Amino acid sequence: NKEHILAQKEVLTPIEYEHYVKHLFDIGEITKELYIELSS
């Protein structure tokens, strides 16, 4: 869920976080809207 993803932002580097969010989007775990929101 969104809270879990945002928690990852605390422990990952910005680049790792971007890759993580992109991966979730690629596998269909999150919607495009959520992907855009989380990567901003």
Results as ranks from 00 to 15, higher is better:
residue 32 K to P: 10
residue 20 Y to R: 02
residue 32 K to E: 11
residue 30 I to V: 05
residue 11 V to W: 14
residue 19 H to K: 14
residue 17 Y to Q: 01
residue 38 L to E: 01
residue 11 V to Y: 13
residue 25 F to E: 01
residue 15 I to M: 15
residue 5 I to S: 02
residue 37 E to A: 10
residue 27 I to N: 14
residue 30 I to S: 00
residue 11 V to L: 06
residue 13 T to H: 08
residue 1 N to Q: 12
residue 32 K to T: 10
residue 7 A to L: 07
residue 33 E to S: 09
residue 29 E to N: 11
residue 29 E to F: 13
residue 14 P to A: 13
residue 24 L to K: 05
residue 34 L to M: 11
residue 6 L to M: 13
residue 1 N to H: 10
residue 36 I to L: 14
residue 12 L to W: 03
residue 25 F to T: 02
residue 15 I to S: 12
residue 5 I to Y: 09
residue 38 L to A: 03
residue 26 D to L: 12
residue 17 Y to V: 01
residue 1 N to G: 05
residue 36 I to V: 14
residue 25 F to G: 01
residue 12 L to A: 01
residue 3 E to I: 12
residue 39 S to T: 12
residue 37 E to C: 05
residue 10 E to D: 14
residue 9 K to D: 01
residue 8 Q to V: 12
residue 16 E to I: 04
residue 21 V to H: 00
residue 26 D to P: 00
residue 2 K to I: 11
residue 39 S to K: 11
residue 35 Y to M: 09
residue 28 G to H: 07
residue 3 E to H: 14
residue 5 I to H: 06
residue 25 F to Q: 03
residue 39 S to R: 12
residue 10 E to T: 08
residue 23 H to N: 14
residue 15 I to K: 06
residue 28 G to V: 02
residue 16 E to G: 06
residue 6 L to G: 04
residue 23 H to Q: 10
residue 22 K to R: 15
residue 32 K to H: 13
residue 17 Y to I: 01
residue 27 I to S: 14
residue 20 Y to N: 01
residue 5 I to D: 01
residue 26 D to Q: 12
residue 36 I to H: 15
residue 34 L to H: 05
residue 34 L to Y: 06
residue 38 L to I: 10
residue 16 E to S: 05
residue 8 Q to T: 08
residue 36 I to R: 09
residue 21 V to M: 06
residue 11 V to N: 09
residue 3 E to Q: 13
residue 33 E to A: 13
residue 3 E to V: 10
residue 34 L to I: 05
residue 14 P to D: 10
residue 15 I to W: 13
residue 9 K to N: 03
residue 35 Y to N: 01
residue 16 E to T: 04
residue 23 H to V: 03
residue 26 D to Y: 14
residue 35 Y to W: 14
residue 12 L to E: 01
residue 36 I to Q: 14
residue 21 V to L: 12
residue 15 I to Q: 09
residue 15 I to E: 10
residue 10 E to K: 09
residue 22 K to M: 11
residue 7 A to P: 03
residue 25 F to R: 03
residue 40 S to Y: 13
residue 21 V to E: 00
residue 23 H to R: 13
residue 18 E to I: 15
residue 26 D to S: 14
residue 39 S to A: 11
residue 39 S to Q: 13
residue 29 E to I: 13
residue 8 Q to G: 03
residue 21 V to W: 02
residue 34 L to S: 06
residue 19 H to F: 14
residue 20 Y to D: 00
residue 19 H to V: 15
residue 17 Y to D: 00
residue 11 V to I: 14
residue 2 K to V: 13
residue 6 L to V: 07
residue 3 E to A: 15
residue 1 N to R: 11
residue 12 L to F: 05
residue 19 H to T: 14
residue 22 K to G: 06
residue 10 E to S: 10
residue 30 I to M: 04
residue 12 L to H: 03
residue 39 S to P: 00
residue 26 D to A: 15
residue 20 Y to L: 11
residue 3 E to P: 07
residue 9 K to H: 05
residue 9 K to Q: 08
residue 21 V to I: 10
residue 7 A to I: 06
residue 13 T to A: 09
residue 17 Y to R: 01
residue 18 E to A: 14
residue 39 S to G: 03
residue 36 I to F: 07
residue 33 E to W: 09
residue 16 E to L: 06
residue 32 K to I: 12
residue 18 E to T: 12
residue 25 F to I: 02
residue 33 E to Q: 07
residue 2 K to G: 03
residue 28 G to T: 01
residue 31 T to V: 05
residue 19 H to A: 13
residue 36 I to T: 11
residue 39 S to L: 15
residue 7 A to K: 06
residue 16 E to H: 04
residue 8 Q to R: 07
residue 16 E to A: 11
residue 35 Y to D: 00
residue 9 K to L: 09
residue 15 I to H: 14
residue 25 F to S: 02
residue 4 H to W: 09
residue 27 I to L: 13
residue 33 E to N: 10
residue 2 K to R: 12
residue 18 E to Y: 15
residue 24 L to V: 03
residue 7 A to N: 08
residue 5 I to P: 02
residue 25 F to P: 00
residue 25 F to C: 02
residue 1 N to P: 06
residue 4 H to Y: 11
residue 28 G to Y: 04
residue 39 S to D: 05
residue 29 E to Y: 15
residue 35 Y to F: 14
residue 24 L to Y: 02
residue 29 E to Q: 13
residue 10 E to G: 10
residue 28 G to F: 04
residue 35 Y to T: 01
residue 5 I to Q: 02
residue 13 T to R: 05
